[in-house]
Design a protein around this nucleic acid. Structure first.
Length: 506
RNA sequence: GCCUCCUUAGCUCAGUCGGUUAGAGCAACGGACUGUUAAUCCGUGUGUCCUAGGUUCAAGUCCUAGAGGGGGCGCCA
């Protein structure tokens, strides 16, 4: 078997590729079939001179997604997207595909999601899933190269630790109710006390009724947990880890990132040090009271707004101009179609810009008036990260807004040793980590303070009774990172068959 | 859960002030032409205007309720 991803090895040789028709263009004496084989895309050229009439007629008859095998010579051609093309000499069809619902034209998201099983074949989806794979293996490599043991937390748990509203519930035989896991962290802590440095990489379930581009009901989470680590070591690890996996994807997925038209700025800046900012300083930056490297968060958002308004004006002018051309008369049918399509497209774009022009002032408002002591929302994360071209770490958070298990600062007990890593350019949180509380009594008080059921945590408290040590860890939402690196606009594109509020099929 | 926009052909959308037989592009099919890249050009036809109720001589268009979807917020990874 030959695969397109190895094509450079076969330059000027005649080989056979098996795959599906991504697209076809035909002419009188020539046919172009773009073949996809799962590893890449290849344009195959059928010309009357080299294949003869019978094969050319067969080639003209194929439909989108027809399965076939094509034999031909691999020829270098820099005009081709991937550098090579095939001069076909033979063709064998497995099945002529029925009329395919997904064209290379635009489609709505709901339509595509209903056809997810077919949408996966599209070029962008192919690229996203390849990045997902590359990222997943890079994560495993990083941890193994750094002495971690991969481990697993249970997916079915018996205790509804943080209330049942965001938990999926299922019957556990006749007598019990089980919940699908929201986090394996507490279990990972127990395993770290047995194995030192561990990480879990498994599915997580949240029954939040949030229908946003950033949420899934079922997603994968990576949760390392390290015995004898403090918050400083935790932050070092997070930074080294994120740099490693981003570099790996950049090195391994050049073609995929090109297909995705992903801006390289992110990858080129990833090796710079990640700024570390305390929550208290971050609040001042968000409110616009403090600059960072001479840039002001609020001013930056205002500039974004001005840019949106300017774009809007340009597009409106273009619409008016095109409408004038259309009504001026003396236009051929083809030209009229072109103008009409252009107007429709521009109208769609202005609608999005208009939405944006209403949203940004709300974000500015929410940032300027942000009350010190509260947790960051989406507008605050946008304001802060718009100033950076690398991920940024925010640490030393108010105790009141963070989880019960985070360790307090000895000299400043109203703050905890937690850290969030925010991806740049408005993307927002991808990592949340902390040093864990080790003192039994402090933990008991925190559990009571958060109104959590003590009996559910007895086993967890045992970890503080039998050889308690400083330890730390973090959690990383896998699909969030795929989304960040690929630049897709919705998290549902980052997993083959996404599950989210309102979507259980296919 | 809240705010907001949307639902018209297989797909993406237009449809003005409520007015006669509901439109375009793409896809499909037929043809022309072409080293083409979402090619281009000519031709062929396709409707539960989301659902229910209401106002009206007349509703795709207005009103009420419901369903589904997009975007933003909240919640969060």
């Amino acid at each position: 078997m030959f695969y397109i991803q190895d094509i450079a090895k076969y330059e000027d040789q005649t080989i056979t590729l098996k795959g599906w028709v991504e697209s076809k263009r035909t002419g009188g004496k020539v046919a172009f079939i773009t073949l996809r084989d799962g590893t890449g895309f290849m344009e195959c050229i059928f010309s009357l001179d080299s294949v003869g009439e019978t094969i050319l007629e067969t080639a003209k008859r194929v439909t989108q997604e027809t399965s076939l095998q094509i034999t031909g010579k691999v020829v270098k051609n820099d005009n081709q997207e991937f550098g090579y093309e095939m001069h076909a000499t033979g063709l064998q069809i497995y099945q002529i595909a029925a009329e395919y619902p997904i064209s290379r034209k635009e489609h709505g998201v709901d339509f595509l999601m209903n056809n997810r099983h077919l949408w996966l074949r599209s070029r962008r989806q192919w690229a996203v899933l390849r990045v997902r794979d590359s990222l997943k293996f890079a994560i495993h490599r990083f941890f193994h190269e750094n002495g971690f043991t991969q481990t697993d937390a249970p997916l079915l748990t018996g205790n509804a630790c943080e209330g049942t509203t965001t938990l999926f519930e299922t019957e556990f035989y006749e007598k019990d109710v089980a919940y699908l896991s929201q986090s394996g962290q507490l279990y990972a802590e127990a395993i770290a006390m047995a194995l030192g440095k561990v990480y879990t990489f498994g599915p997580t379930f949240r029954a939040e009724r949030s229908s946003t581009p950033r949420h899934l009901s079922e997603f994968w989470m990576i949760e390392p947990e390290m015995a004898f680590y403090d918050i400083e070591m935790d932050m070092e690890l997070i930074e080294a880890f994120v740099k490693y996996i981003v570099n790996a994807v950049y090195a391994e997925c050049k073609t995929e990132l090109k297909v995705l038209e992903r801006d390289n700025v992110l990858f080129e800046n990833i090796n710079k040090p990640f700024p570390r900012i305390t929550y208290t300083d971050a609040v001042k930056i968000i409110q616009g009271k403090q600059d960072w490297n001479g840039r002001n968060a609020i001013t930056t958002l205002r500039q974004q707004l001005a840019q949106v308004l300017a774009d809007l004006e340009v597009k409106n002018a273009e619409i008016a101009e095109t409408e004038a051309l259309l009504t001026a008369g003396n236009v051929s049918k083809g030209q009229a179609n072109y103008y009409q399509n252009k107007i429709d497209r521009l109208k769609g774009e202005t609608r999005k810009l208009e939405d944006k022009s209403k949203e940004i002032p709300e974000w500015i408002e929410a940032s300027v008036n942000f009350p010190d002591g509260e947790d960051f929302g989406s507008p605050q994360e946008k304001a802060l990260t718009s100033l950076f071209d690398t991920p940024v770490m925010v640490y030393k958070w108010p105790r009141a807004i963070k989880a019960f298990y985070m360790k307090r600062y000895e000299d400043d007990p109203e703050f905890v040793k937690g850290v969030d890593l925010l991806a740049p350019e408005g993307f927002g949180e991808i990592v949340g980590g902390s040093e864990r509380e080790t003192d039994l009594q402090t933990l008991v008080d925190a559990i009571n303070h958060h109104d959590l059921p003590m009996e559910a945590f007895e086993w967890y408290l045992d970890l503080r009774r039998f050889g308690s040590v400083p330890h730390a860890g973090f959690g990383l939402g896998f699909e969030r990172v795929v989304m960040w690196l690929t630049g897709v606009s919705h998290i549902r594109e980052t997993i083959p068959f996404p599950r989210y509020y309102g979507r259980l099929f296919p």
